[in-house]
Design a protein around this nucleic acid. Sequence first.
DNA 1: GCGACAG
DNA 2: ATCTTGTCGC
Length: 289
Amino acid sequence: MGLARPDLRPDPSLSRAEMEGLQRDIAAAATFEDDHGLDPAAVAVEEATSLADGLPPARDGAQERLGTGDEGSADTTPDPDGPTVVGVDQAFLTDRDGDRPDAAVSAAVAFRAGTVVEYASATTPLSIPYVPGLLAFREGEPILAALDALDADPDLLICDGSGRIHFREAGLATHVGVLRDVPSVGVAKSLLCGEPDEPTVERPEGWRTPVRADDAVTTAEPGTVIGHAFQSRQYPNSKRVNPLYVSPGHRVSAATAVEFVAALCAGYKLPKPTRLADAYADTVKRDAD
DNA sequence: GCGACAG
DNA sequence: ATCTTGTCGC
């Protein structure tokens, strides 16, 4: 599957102003409404049962297909032809004294009927530094490379970062979703911009509140709902867990984006596709040492 | 000029 | 994001 919008693909030599202009074009091409035909219940993963949450062995190849689910058991509604949800995340190799070039290890983990069906990864040299608001220019290409290494065709992408919760409504999830024209959702662990309707501290599991555009969001009317703060996990006692900030990437509404994430967290803070992609990227990274 | 800012 | 061991709690 190639790019749906090659005209919106960033050139590595863009100036900052040009990157921001491209983000406005990407936001204009994005759809923040439901256009996927997916039912959150159909993408749900099994609730955490025991300690059976392992990873497969990281092999030399860039990808690996699994014939049968190797984690958990698809006892409820084992629909082999159900929608494919893909989680993407990255690990980084930093340049300690010129030993090796800076690089990103991107991992994509595909789920169907609540279980893993494929792992893929790609290692990409990094040139652009991290700049708040321009994350997609650093991580977008590496993520697309990992998706290229995946045989599965994603029906929904779960990205680690913001989507519509962004200065120009074009965060990482929106960037990747629009370029591939795949429904996508952004899941961030901290808030880039916007204002939650209510304070988010010490909320019970399952709690959520809208995040509205504030003055920092230059492309939306102030007050527009651009995402949600969502308490995916909380402990009865002791330490408190921070909420997630969920926002539409492309072809998903703010309300449905939270429903997808709620169906994918299964008792953990992060969606399972994200957790496994994170762990797989780390595994591949370690093997590179 | 300062603040504030996903990963 | 990354540099890093143990440790407290469910």
